[in-house]
Amino acid sequence: MTEEILSLITKYPKELRYALAAMQDMQRQFKHVPREGIELLAQHIGCKTAQLYSMATFYKALSLDAKGKHIIKLCDGTACHIRGANQLIDGIERLLGIAPGETSQDGLFSLELVNCLGSCAIAPVMVVDETYYSKVTLEKLPEIIDAYREVTP
């Protein structure tokens, strides 16, 4: 992994203001920001690990633990909440054994709760990777999720 990380971060000038971009690249490639990545980036920039750790824990888009291959974002904003997002959380837990913030054992799925996706008219909304699913029901859930299992080689 060291090689891969280095090739990602050495693309950037040795300045603190590029740290976020470099960490986003790591997040994209490894589905998380590995500890080694933070340490190597600090060396590259010549800043303190603490500074980057602070940044990495501040942004929701970055995570220190490995995320699943597919990210399920379930909206639990007001409209979705009222239209049963809670039941969907339970439904996903039954299907995949993960609570919000967790990643399934097989490393395929992570579940995240979001507060509003701006699509209240089609509540409850669920987004898997980049695809939006509208008016999701407990009945529709298995079908949606199984589709992602299949595309995984």
Binding site: A50, Y53, T57
Partner: peptide, 17 residues
């Protein structure tokens, strides 16, 4: 520069990396 603020909002705290 050994410590920093970690996380944000209600979970924000002071901690080493």
């Amino acid at each position: 520069g050994a410590i920093a603020t970690v996380n944000r909002g209600i979970t924000k705290e002071i901690a080493p990396p």
